[in-house]
Design a protein around this nucleic acid. Structure first.
Lengths: 215, 215
DNA sequence: CCAAAAGTGTTTGCTCTACACCCATGG
DNA sequence: CCATGGGTGTAGAGCAAACACTTTTGG
């Protein structure tokens, strides 16, 4: 035992990288901070964990308070604890990842702590408060690994979607073209999608709407 | 803001699941606790993070204090923060994963906090203190995912090893047989191994010793 | 009838798997 | 010379990638 060192009683925070797929781009939700430190800078939604509160529970509460959104599964990504990551003192942050479909993403509005809320394309992020760039980088890496499984990808889209929308989302996230026929064959071969029997009518030939099998 | 809830100032701990490959089994290092809570129970090495200390730094310090070992890369696995995971109060634990070769593993000895130190086969673990079973389960899942890349696997073995040893380690970790010829072709095809030019002499035909390419 | 997105199969190469025998050494 | 683990090649199956045209609708 090194003996005379002080055990730490840090503040404990959760931050959430919340992604959506909107206007053909992968986007992340950011809030513009009302108060110092980093007043005016963009930051992830998040905040301190309360007494008696679980980590994931805290993440959901902060999301609700700061954005009005309720999300599905939250995935823990990484914990950031550099001694100097917050100028106010020692703050440990547990980072979470979640996805919302674009139709729900539209309903987000800033809580009291923020002067603005926006969905920023991940390809062009502004300067961020604290180490939130690193948090987003870690979350994005995890998201890219997870979208290999269809359900994670589908969580970025509304409950019913066309195969073309799914394909566009995948292409945008991986940053590379996807062959239509290979994509459709593989996706349908997984047996995780089912047709809703409905169609999306647009400018051209209507497209079949699918949903994830099971509920 | 929910307003009247108390921000938490928990204790912050790190715990390390340290694996090795010994006697044809994947094993994890456990310490028998000298003091309550859970005195006498087996637990992972770990302890509280000090003032001004980074998370990984704390993990290395605790490992050194409690086992005498110095390890290579530490991988952060997951953070456990259930309100009731420690009977003494709120303690957040950041779990790390590391590997040591069997020749170094032999040199481990218990520090002041433990009455014993042992390398337990992961296939047959005793009852563990706190939520350390869950921590090991998470670390093991991560290890299984990582050993697909050769370097993670090689970290369980001494600096120079035979292909058979590597194959046995892989088979033990995945819990299934591995075809010798396919294994050798794939591993050598990666171009990450190089022959040392030396041989291991034993009861039978000597085996070529390899090491990881580059340092 | 024109523009634009939806939808559909086949071929090719590669990667993964299954499988059996000879070799070198120590005792 | 025998027992034991070290070392080697090939054939078949399944998967992934490349590739172009027809269909349906709205304007």
């Amino acid at each position: 035992m090194a003996a005379n060192a002080q055990p730490l009683r840090p503040l404990l925070a959760v931050d959430v990288a919340l992604f959506t797929f909107m206007a053909a781009e992968l986007r992340v939700l950011l809030l513009q901070r009302r108060h110092p430190p980093h007043a005016g800078a963009w930051a992830l939604p998040g905040g301190l964990v309360d007494e008696g509160e679980g980590l994931e529970q805290a993440a959901r509460r902060e999301l609700a308070e700061e954005t009005g959104l309720t999300v599905g599964p939250l995935t823990q990504v990484h914990t950031f604890g550099d001694p100097d990551r917050d100028p106010r003192g020692r703050v440990i942050s547990v980072a979470y990842l979640a996805c919302v479909p674009a139709d729900q993403a539209e309903g987000a509005g800033p809580g009291a702590e923020a002067t603005a809320l926006a969905w920023h394309p991940v390809a062009a992020l502004p300067e961020l408060a604290f180490d939130h760039s690193r948090i987003i980088a870690a979350a994005l890496a995890r998201l890219r690994a997870d979208i290999a499984q269809l359900p994670a990808l589908a969580r970025l889209l509304p409950a019913a979607f066309t195969l073309s929308e799914l394909q566009q989302a995948l292409a945008a996230i991986q940053g590379q073209e996807v062959d239509k026929r290979n994509f459709r064959r593989k996706i349908l071969g997984l047996g995780l999608l089912e047709s809703t029997g409905r169609y999306r009518y647009g400018d051209h030939r209507p497209a079949q709407l699918f949903r994830l099998h099971q509920a």
